[in-house]
């Protein structure tokens, strides 16, 4: 007699099982990034205090991903919505989750000003160097020479500028009490640690926290698994340096 072994998929405790499998394409980076975020929330034991906000674009597919109170907002507007939530309820731990279009194009004024004001929220930008949900258009982060639907001959920095360096920009305009880092889906252990530090920074009431996570979009990149990983690990990191840009010193007694 054969005994069927059912393997429970391993997922963070704060993920909502009823809404799994999640809605992202196979190979998409969002699932991994949100798993790292979920692990960080679990390890800090803050699930019941988190208010999770997601943007428009593929990030919106996370609106029911967590067993956390969640708000799906408009394109680029997750940062001000979570700012509003946090200002009215400082005891909540607010996470604004968006793509690179939401963070660096349509919502850039919100990111710049929330960072300048040192809002005590965590903003996460998943950077997959193009617009996923709308079908692969050029984003502020598209690499020079990279072909997209709106840069079919390759991005020309002469006419469309260079890729936006989000964490570098945020680090330049925030005080020392901010936490700023760039992680990658290719190193989830490190990314989880970054999320933990970023969330701890908010819990401690220090200031703004910002993590960009390098992500993948094999659907629009039209890449197989090997090419996808190669692009995330080798090509993207040539331009987007992974690491912490700003980490407030631990307070006494921590």
């Amino acid at each position: 007699m054969t005994v069927a072994t059912v393997l429970e998929p391993k997922m963070p405790k704060c993920w909502r099982q009823e809404t799994k499998p999640h809605k992202f394409c196979p190979g998409c980076g969002h699932g991994d990034i949100l798993k790292a975020l979920g692990t960080a929330i679990d390890e800090l034991g803050i699930q019941d205090r988190v208010v999770f906000g997601c943007d428009i674009g593929c990030s919106l597919l996370s609106w029911d991903l967590f067993n956390c109170d969640s708000i799906q907002t408009h394109h680029g507007r997750t940062t001000p919505v979570m700012t509003g939530v946090k200002r009215a309820r400082p005891d909540r731990i607010c996470i604004a989750y968006m793509g690179d279009g939401g963070g660096y194009a349509i919502g850039s004024q919100h990111l710049v000003n929330a960072a300048s004001r040192n809002e005590k929220i965590l903003v996460i930008v998943a950077n997959n160097v193009q617009y996923g949900m709308t079908g692969g258009q050029m984003a502020p982060t598209t690499l020079p020479g990279m072909k997209t639907e709106t840069s079919p001959y390759g991005r020309d920095p002469e006419s469309t500028g260079n890729p936006t360096l989000g964490p570098e920009m945020v680090a330049a305009i925030t005080p020392d009490s901010a936490y700023v880092a760039r992680g990658t889906m290719a190193n989830l252990r490190q990314l989880t640690q970054m999320f933990k530090k970023a969330l701890q920074n908010q819990i401690d009431g220090n200031g703004f926290s910002f993590v960009e996570a390098l992500s993948a979009c094999p659907t629009n990149w039209r890449t197989n698994a090997a090419k996808t990983w190669e692009f995330v690990e080798k090509e993207m990191t040539k331009y987007f340096k992974v690491g912490e840009l700003k980490a407030p010193a631990k307070k006494e007694g921590q």
């Binding site: 408009h74 001000p80 700012t83 509003g84 939530v85 200002r87 009215a88 309820r89 004024q109 000003n113």
Partner: peptide, 22 residues
């Protein structure tokens, strides 16, 4: 009070504050 970066933000922070129950 919060002076936001524009009216888009003023509208959305207001929505956020209201969703917080204020």
């Amino acid at each position: 009070f919060l002076q936001t970066e524009d009216e888009i933000s003023a509208g959305f922070t207001t929505c956020g504050g209201v969703m917080s129950g204020k």
